[in-house]
């Protein structure tokens, strides 16, 4: 496992605040688009195939119906 799943953000409240602030005033469609752009930007920053696929699996594991 190359994906980090232990705490890695120095100031979690500050980040979470910034995440919500980035969506402020946007409607659902605009927010969806922002999220998509954010995922692409972060994915490119990570780059490493193994890490990306582990991240996809980790996120997907919670999608139970």
């Amino acid at each position: 496992m190359t994906l980090k799943l232990t705490p890695n953000i120095a100031d979690p409240d500050d980040f979470y605040d910034a995440l919500l602030a980035a969506h402020e005033g946007l409607d659902k469609a605009q927010s969806d688009a922002l999220n998509a752009r954010l995922i692409l930007v972060l994915a490119n920053h990570i780059g490493d195939r193994e890490t990306l696929f582990e991240a996809l699996q980790t996120a997907r594991a919670r999608a139970r119906d």
Binding site: D32, A36, R37, L40
Partner: peptide, 20 residues
């Protein structure tokens, strides 16, 4: 719907950023 959202996000980012 979500694949359309990602597709358009790629096109949006590609204008300014080489990575996309």
């Amino acid at each position: 719907e979500i694949s359309a959202i990602f597709r358009n996000a790629v096109l949006d980012l590609a204008r300014d950023h080489a990575f996309a």
